[in-house]
C-alpha cells in the first residue's frame, strides 16, 4: 500500500492554554477527499491552522505525518513548498502588493525549494492562464492587489486559483463555503472537482452539508469538542443535516 498523504495520530493542541484538539486520528490517502463537519468551536479551524503551521497553536501530544515526513518539523513555508495548501477561511488583504507579485514570489519559492529554475514573467502569465481555465476564474484578479477590495466570493475564488497555480498535492479548505452565494459556491466546488485527479488529497472543512453536494467526499468525519466522533460516507452528512449536531454532542457527553 502506498504511503498515506496525511496521517494524524492522537493529536492534541492548545490555543492560549485551552485544549482545542483532543486526540484526533485521521488518515487520508492520495486521491481521497475527506470532509470534516462540526459545530462552531469544535476545533475545525484549529485543525486547519495546525496543519498549515500557524504558530499560536501549541501541539501538546501526537504526531502528523505528511507524505511520510514529520509535518511538525517543517516551517509553514516548507509545508507549502511540499505541496500542502490551506485555503483560508478569512483570506487577508495585503495592501500595495499585486496578486501577480505575490504569486510570482510563491511559485518561485516553491520552485527554488525543489531546485527548479524560476519562472519569468511570461512563463508565469502562461501558467496563470492555464490554471485560470482549470478553475474557471477570470484573470482580472491577478492584476489587483492581493484580496484588496475583493468581495467575499472573489476572495474564496482567489484561494482556489492559488491552489491551482501552486499545484497543491494536499489542500485543506477551511470553510471555503462560508459567505458564498450559490453561484460562487458552484464555481469554487467546480474548481476543486476539476483538480481531483486520483492523486491529490483534499480535506474539506465545512459547517454545512450543501458544499458536499458539489464536492462529493469519500469520507465524512464529524468533529465535536476536538474529537472525531463519527466517520463514514456521505450519508453521515445527510444524517447530520437532518438531526443537527446536538445529538452527537449528547452522545459524546454520555460516552465520556
Amino acid at each position: 500500500m502506498s504511503t498515506p498523504l496525511l496521517e494524524i495520530k492522537n493529536l492534541h493542541a492548545e490555543v492560549e492554554g485551552n485544549e482545542i484538539l483532543n486526540g484526533i486520528n485521521l488518515t487520508i490517502n492520495p486521491g481521497e477527499v475527506h470532509s470534516i463537519m462540526g459545530p462552531n468551536g469544535s476545533g475545525k479551524s484549529t485543525l486547519a491552522q495546525v496543519l498549515a503551521g500557524k504558530d499560536d497553536c501549541d501541539i501538546t501530544q501526537g504526531q502528523i505525518l505528511y507524505k511520510g515526513k514529520d509535518l511538525l518539523d517543517l516551517d509553514p513555508n516548507e509545508r507549502a513548498c511540499e505541496g500542502l495548501f490551506l485555503a483560508f477561511q478569512y483570506p487577508v488583504e495585503i495592501p500595495g502588493v499585486s496578486s501577480m507579485q505575490f504569486l510570482k514570489a510563491a511559485v518561485n519559492a516553491k520552485r527554488e525549494y525543489h531546485g527548479l529554475e524560476e519562472l519569468d514573467g511570461v512563463q508565469l502569465l502562461q501558467l496563470f492562464r492555464e490554471k485560470a481555465d482549470v478553475v474557471n476564474i477570470s484573470m482580472d484578479m491577478v492584476k489587483r492587489n492581493v484580496n484588496e477590495g475583493f468581495s467575499g466570493g472573489e476572495k474564496k475564488r482567489f484561494e482556489i486559483f492559488q491552489m491551482a497555480v501552486l499545484d497543491s498535492e494536499f489542500a485543506v479548505l477551511d470553510e471555503t463555503d462560508s459567505g458564498l452565494d450559490i453561484d460562487a459556491l458552484r464555481i469554487v466546488s467546480e474548481g476543486v472537482t476539476n483538480m481531483r485527479d486520483g492523486k491529490r488529497g483534499f480535506l474539506v472543512i465545512t459547517h454545512y452539508q450543501r458544499l458536499l453536494n458539489h464536492i462529493v467526499p469519500d469520507v465524512v468525519h464529524v468533529l465535536v469538542d476536538g474529537q472525531i466522533v463519527k466517520s463514514g460516507g456521505i450519508e453521515v452528512a445527510t444524517e447530520l443535516e437532518q438531526q443537527g449536531y446536538a445529538s452527537w454532542a449528547e452522545a459524546e457527553a454520555t460516552a465520556s
Partner: peptide, 11 residues
Amino acid sequence: QLFYCTARGIE
C-alpha cells in the same frame, strides 16, 4: 499577513 505569505511558501 505574514502567515498568509508563509503559508504560500514564501520565506
